[in-house]
Design a protein around this nucleic acid. Structure first.
Lengths: 243, 243
DNA sequence: CGCCAAATTGAGGACATTCAATGTCGGTGG
DNA sequence: CCACCGACATTGAATGTCCTCAATTTGGCG
């Protein structure tokens, strides 16, 4: 399974070191480790394995998934340059991590990661911060999966991708993952993903440009359709929920 | 909205202090705070509010929810005696927390919580452990919501409830929350929840005993139907996913 | 014991899935 | 460099699961 090997580093999946270090100070812990190359489609670790290492992504995109039953795959998340994989794991990997594009990663043992992080007064809050953000993201995804319809899910996904730093240039959004990845992430089928994109294109919200690029024609429409209820949140309605 | 006020402390929602402290050492941080009573249906905090306090549940059950759009509610989790609410929050509450039953809680400021936790060599790992477990639970829920059908969702829920310490006595499981709570937690409607329970009852997997109790007739059937693929996991299939 | 909210049950409909056929992108080989 | 091939994506039609709306029943509390 050779997927877009040459594309891997063409786009913005390369961490801007200067900025990334600032945003992700945990990266410094991995600095001493050698860089490993992971070919697109190859796994970094497997669900059920003991967690011996944590990974830091320097370049590329990684997907996390779990298998349930025969043939059912749930993608629990995507990780990008600068991200740490597995930070919240205790004993065993709860997911299989696979490279979506060719990746460059660094790994350190869980033991030394924890030693370094706990020892350092500056790194520890960053670690806690990371865990908190991961949990918050998971909650967002839970809301998406339990209450949103196909269109809202896809718009939310596109919005999230577009809001990532360095992915959008003049409205053109690069989507490194394929339709199956997106479908398994959003709890839909590839057909529904495809149909939904087509409908959004008909309405001039987005425009497909090849398999891995999307031009965003109306950011505001996208926002509305994502069902994130921005102008309809905290201030307006919560006090009304008196019981 | 007065819900089962008298039932609140009849069942096993009361934390066994001795055991709970052992399992939830973070409780000690709250020990000095006075106990507050929260009536069933009342809110502890609101989505969008600044996080000024963390809560520790001594007695009762709390549900966390978020509202999207008009009338759509997603319950992101339930919390029980011994649990800390909001541990992973950074700035604002991402959910509204409401008492499902009458509750007794303690609150301390976020500031002192963090000071105490960071200062203590013994509490800090417990806090990190808590964050990790919260994230893992969120991931489980993501898988449930994205890939499981109505029956699997309900069986998973019943299993999780039954595996909580102190809830099951000779196969009788107390369900403090109502059907709407369960539905919003599992991403279904009350009607589907009801129909699914009825089907399970017809097949002698469970038996309804009033609105808030369920007799589990076959734990193993429940396990199978939950779709958690236990005898079909790590060891058998992962190595096969070669790419 | 009676009431009322909560839960169950039923019928019909909508949205997403499944299965199948067609179309297209992109990488490889000529 | 272009054409071809295979994998990926799109589109269509039929099916199914879950949702919606409505009527009925239940059970817990006053």
């Amino acid at each position: 399974m050779l997927m877009q090997r040459n594309q891997a580093f063409d786009h913005a999946e390369v961490a801007n070191e200067a900025i990334t270090i600032g945003q992700q100070p945990l990266a410094s812990v991995f600095q001493t480790a050698p860089t490993e190359t992971v070919e697109a489609g190859k796994a970094l670790c497997w669900e059920g394995d003991a967690v011996k290492h944590f990974f830091h992504i320097q370049q590329g995109v990684v997907r996390l998934h779990r298998i349930i039953g025969e043939g059912r795959r749930a993608v629990t998340g995507f990780h990008f340059a600068g991200d740490v994989i597995g930070a919240f794991l205790q004993d065993d990997f709860l997911f299989t991590a696979e490279a979506v594009t060719d990746c460059k990663v660094r790994r350190i043992s869980r033991k030394s990661f924890h030693e370094e992080v706990v020892r350092s007064e500056s790194l520890r809050p960053e670690y806690i911060n990371l865990l908190c953000r991961e949990t918050m993201a998971a909650h967002d995804q839970m809301v998406l999966l339990s209450k949103k319809n196909a269109e809202e899910r896809l718009c939310s996904f596109i919005m999230t991708m577009a809001n990532r730093r360095g992915t959008t240039q003049k409205g053109l959004l690069h989507i490194p993952m394929n339709r199956q990845d997106i479908a398994d992430y959003l709890g839909m089928t590839i057909e529904t993903v495809s149909r939904t994109i087509s409908k959004l294109a008909l309405r001039n919200v987005v425009a497909s440009e090849g398999r891995h690029d999307l031009r965003i024609l109306s950011f505001s429409r996208l926002q509305q359709l994502s069902g994130n209820a921005d102008d309809f949140s905290a201030e307006t309605c919560h006090r009304m929920s008196v019981h």
